[in-house]
C-alpha cells in the first residue's frame, strides 16, 4: 500500500515575491509599489503602524486580494487569477489576525480540514493533524470544540491548521496579538523553530519590537502603504526613516 501522504504533491517553490504591488480601494492607496521577497527557510518580519498595509500585503500574497497593479510571483511564476485554495495547494499558507477557527468543529477537525482539502483521506488527515497539534503542545485539547478555546490556544490551532502537510511558506498575521508578554514570547519562540522543523519560510507581522527584532533574519517596514525601510534588524533599527515614520516624531 502506498503511503497516502505520498499522494499529495509536496510544494517545491523556493521563493514568494511581491513585485511592485499596489492596491487601491476606491481611489485610496492601501499599498503603493511594494516589493517583498520571502525565501524558504528564513523568517522575515513585517512591521509598521496601524493602517500601514501589512494585512493587505498578506492578503495579496495569499490570493485574498488581487493587486490593482504589480504581481505576486511564486517560484517566479505569475499567480494572476489564483484563488486562495490554489495558493494553499501550491504551498502558501496563512493565519488570520481574528483566528477564524471553525467554531462548531473540534480542534482536531479544524486541523484535519487542511489535510483533507489537500487530498488526504480522513484517517491520514487525522494523524497528520495530531502530529502538528502535538508539536504545538495542544494535542490534549484535540477533542474540544474550537469555539470554547481561550485566546492563546485559538492562535495555536490557527497555526496548526496552516502547518499541516508543511507548506513552503507560512504568513502569520499578528499571531501574538492580545496575548500577555510572556504568552506572546512563548508563541514567537515556537515560531523561530518553524523553518528548521517544517522547512518553510515565515513572514510574520508582530507589534512587539523586542520580539520581532530577535526572531527576524530580515525586516520590511511599511508606512502609509509604502516600504520605508528593509534589511537586517540592526540596519532597520539604525534607519532614521524608521525612527521618524514608525516610532513617531517624539522619539
Amino acid at each position: 500500500m502506498v503511503d497516502p501522504l505520498l499522494r499529495v504533491p509536496q510544494p517545491t517553490a523556493a521563493e514568494l515575491a511581491a513585485e511592485g504591488v499596489s492596491v487601491r480601494f476606491q481611489g485610496l492607496a492601501a499599498l503603493s509599489e511594494v516589493n517583498l521577497t520571502l525565501l524558504r527557510g528564513e523568517i522575515v518580519g513585517l512591521i509598521g503602524p496601524n493602517g500601514a498595509g501589512k494585512t493587505t500585503l498578506i492578503n495579496c500574497l495569499t490570493g485574498f486580494q488581487r493587486p490593482t497593479t504589480g504581481r505576486v510571483a511564486l517560484a517566479r511564476e505569475d499567480t494572476a487569477g489564483w484563488n486562495p485554495a490554489r495558493f494553499r495547494k501550491a504551498g502558501v499558507a496563512r493565519t488570520f489576525q481574528a483566528g477564524r477557527l471553525f467554531r462548531d468543529m473540534t480542534v482536531a477537525e479544524n486541523v484535519e480540514v487542511t489535510g483533507v482539502g489537500l487530498g488526504l483521506d480522513r484517517k491520514s488527515a487525522h494523524s497528520v493533524a495530531m502530529e502538528v497539534l502535538d508539536w504545538l503542545g495542544i494535542a490534549d485539547k484535540a477533542a474540544r470544540t474550537a469555539g470554547t478555546l481561550d485566546y492563546t490556544d485559538e492562535r495555536r490551532v490557527g497555526i496548526a491548521r496552516a502547518l499541516v502537510l508543511p507548506p513552503a511558506f507560512i504568513l502569520m498575521d499578528e499571531p501574538a496579538a492580545g496575548m500577555s508578554d510572556s504568552e506572546g514570547e512563548d508563541l514567537v519562540g515556537l515560531v523561530t523553530s518553524i523553518p528548521t522543523k517544517f522547512g518553510c519560510g515565515v513572514l510574520i507581522i508582530e507589534h512587539n519590537m523586542r520580539v520581532i527584532m530577535n526572531v527576524s533574519h530580515r525586516l520590511y517596514v511599511l508606512d502609509g502603504g509604502r516600504t520605508v525601510a528593509q534589511g537586517t534588524p540592526a540596519e532597520v533599527q539604525a534607519n532614521p526613516a524608521v525612527i521618524s515614520a514608525y516610532l513617531g516624531a517624539d522619539v
Binding site: T62, F64, N83, P84, A85, R88, K89, A93, R94, F96, R100, L101, F102, R103, D104, M105, E109, N110, E112, V113, T114, V116, G117, L118, D121, R122, A125, R161, A162
Partner: peptide, 23 residues
Amino acid sequence: SRYGLMLRASRDDEVAAQSSSVD
C-alpha cells in the same frame, strides 16, 4: 466524509476554509 468535513468548515468560516484549500 471528507466532503462533509470540508463543507462544515465552509459553513463555520468561508474565508478560513478557502485558506485550508477547500474548493
